[in-house]
Nucleic acid binder design. Structure first.
Lengths: 419, 419
DNA sequence: CCATTTAATTCAACCGCTGAACAAATCGCG
DNA sequence: CGCGATTTGTTCAGCGGTTGAATTAAATGG
């Protein structure tokens, strides 16, 4: 919430959860659509009715609305299953609304388009060192890339329903980037700088952009990418800083002010190396990219952030002893922090994302070791540690996914627009 | 969820959130009742209508149902405010349903009765060392105490709507206490042992008891005790072990399996003292009651758990240097852990409860110091650290509160029963 | 004492779910 | 090939519960 500026306006009946007459339909549209989205096989109207407890008549009426709004389509005849009139499978429309995901990072810009089904339809990446570039220029380049992506989406018959921008930093209310240390940004008012670009122009009164932290959106990407996956997990992105996205019960936990996930300053060695945060022995100083590179004896600091990880992976693959030792140490430090978090939150899954994804083969064993040492319940309830399925650049995909996900969760907003 | 056995049966319309015709009333009953509960002044029907967006007609109908069900009462004439017909204030009934909160701990049994308004109507405590007592005997004594409390409630015209039992340990599905180290309990099947006692007899088919972790219920007690307080906070109970209840967005976070809050093994000194959990340098070894007592030079281990805290407070009050040093060290260790949690979850409040409550004057400064050193966002968003308002034994009160809270959140369950 | 104001209730209208009946489409069995 | 069985999807009268306006209730102020 704190990380959003101008959320889709909250319309009727949302006042304090009161249920008015029309909310009935509003809620049931969401229930039915969610079920279609979550099913692994295209469900029938009758099946949805049986599962939800609604009447077949009601489900039919609701589905008619969803089809008219281009959110749902009927699948072609299903494989026969038995006697009786064959069911017509329902699937999410792949030519309806889509989400635009954007990312500004230290050494690349990215834009991607994800449709309702969660498929990545387009993915554009521009590599460039953005540290010397002013925020205004960086955002102008991003707007150009976004326009390109939007054109590609339109060619596919898709309608962009909104956009989400991932930045590697703390985001406050109103899309204000308070601090993005690795970009050198401080108090950058993204909406203001984008004013005038097509990105920022409301379509049908719906504000087009939300700004959020990169780690948060990457965690969401991971959540959407595995609909049958765990409902609660910790997603750690190891870049220059270390960020974590916390997904609890299937939704992102943002914290009291939207600044959750600061795991980089978890104390792994309270009397240890001083950290720029003022504390001592922070995780970042032991498992951050700079620390790993230094320990591996690489000149490091000059490398682009995302090539550093692959570089380390190559060296480790080749059996370089210094690199292997550096990764083992980093993994152990990471494991201490992860174990603390798992103890506290009772999570059953930890995802290594961002720069950690390619390094997972070497980081995972020490992390698992620390967990089994330190997590009380690990003995009778194992904790899974695995690399992110989306790998790096999952933040843009996650951002785009969060846009379409909002439509699935509250289809009335889209239906009112397109009616 | 994992910590509950036999939750109130989930009736109509709860299937996957589908909203059926009758759910409309069900939901609006909850909306109106919650608003009455949350208001700081008795609201009028018209005011509720304006706030929620419902019609005055609807609110009147809903309120009629709530009054008929003894959940709401009309307050006496309000102080005049202006022209027009005076409003009739609505308040939660103080003679309707009530919750029974129970607690088994190392050196006492407790039972308390809380009415809908959150007022503690009765509170019985029996001091006794329960470590040498078998679980069956302990629960039999508890059942006797509960019967006493129930009789007192009935004399007040209250109807007990359920009970919650707090135990200092891990609770699994079905009310099974997996492990309560300080009680010496392991795999104790509470419902089975209580079978036959009046506590376990369903009333009108509603199962009467839920079993939960002490730290969780204490955190809920804190939440209910301050309706206008923070929506997210960490509640730490320092007993022999150290437990934490995590309240996020106004509801308790239990974790993937119901075992969240294990902060006692947070690594404050990863290469430090070995801990019985197998790890090293766990918080418990530095800020646990035994550790503090040992550092203060007290024979300690023999003291009952809750007198140990007051004993330490007395010594600190008297200026005993060893005690003051011990508390400073414990506070620093606690601060390291708390800072890590606050960084991760972006909480704005930390509550020192249980045995830490009386020690707060001495623990708070070092905790605050570590937070301001280590929490990045502390500079522009302060973190409040304060003692629990309920002090010790808040678990029983919190448990009783959770019973009545369930009624406020879903009044239909109660109305169906009492109709 | 009456106009004004705000609170609460009453009541016909209406929205959207309900349940049953019906039509559609396929399989299985003679 | 035909007919019953079976399951899906639609139609429609019925109904619960909200809606909005009109009405009554109860106070203040000039």
């Amino acid at each position: 919430m704190a990380a959003m500026w101008q959320c889709q306006e909250v319309t009727s009946a949302s006042t304090a959860g009161a249920v008015r007459q029309g909310s009935l339909r509003e809620l049931n549209l969401a229930v039915v659509l969610r079920r279609i989205a979550a099913a692994d096989r295209p469900p029938s109207r009758a099946g949805i009715a049986a599962d939800t407890g609604l009447t077949r008549a009601t489900v039919s009426a609701v589905v008619d609305d969803l089809i008219a709004g281009r959110l749902v389509a009927e699948a072609e005849p299903e494989p026969r299953t038995g006697a009786g009139r064959p069911a017509r499978g329902l699937v999410l429309a792949s030519d309806g609304p889509a989400g635009l995901g954007l990312e500004v990072n230290v050494d690349y810009l990215a834009a991607c388009v994800v449709d309702l089904t969660g498929t990545v339809r387009h993915h554009l990446v521009r590599r460039a060192d953005l540290r010397p570039v002013s925020p205004a220029d960086a955002l102008a380049r991003l707007a150009a890339l976004a326009a390109e992506a939007r054109a590609a989406a339109v060619r596919d018959g898709l309608t962009l329903a909104g956009a989400a921008l991932a930045v590697p930093g703390l985001v406050g209310d109103g899309g204000l980037v308070r601090l993005a240390p690795n970009l050198g940004w401080r108090d950058v008012d993204v909406p203001a700088l984008l004013a005038g670009h097509s990105l920022a122009e409301p379509v049908d009164g719906v504000p087009p952009l939300v700004v959020d932290n990169e780690a948060n959106l990457a965690a969401l990407g991971e959540l959407y990418a595995r609909p049958a996956g765990p409902r609660s997990f910790l997603h750690i992105t190891g870049e220059i800083g270390i960020g974590a996205g916390i997904v609890l019960d299937g939704s992102l936990y943002r914290g009291a002010r939207g600044w959750s996930g600061e795991i980089g300053h978890f104390p792994v060695q309270p009397q240890g190396r001083p950290c720029r945060c003022g504390g001592q022995g922070c995780l970042e100083r032991y498992a951050g990219q700079e620390a790993i590179l230094a320990a591996a004896g690489l000149p490091g600091a000059e490398l682009p952030a995302d090539t550093a990880a692959t570089r380390l992976a190559d060296l480790a693959d080749a059996g370089d002893p210094a690199t292997l030792a550096a990764l083992a140490d980093a993994g152990a430090a990471l494991g201490v922090a992860v174990a603390g978090v798992v103890n506290l939150l009772d999570l059953d899954t930890v995802v290594l994302g961002g720069g950690y994804a390619p390094l997972a083969p070497w980081l995972r064993p020490p992390v698992v070791a620390e967990i089994s040492r330190r997590v009380l319940t690990a003995a009778w309830a194992p904790v899974e540690v695995r690399p992110a399925v989306l790998g790096a650049q999952s933040a843009a995909v996650g951002g785009a996914g969060s846009v379409v996900r909002r439509i699935v969760d509250r289809p009335v907003g889209w239906l009112a627009r397109s009616a």
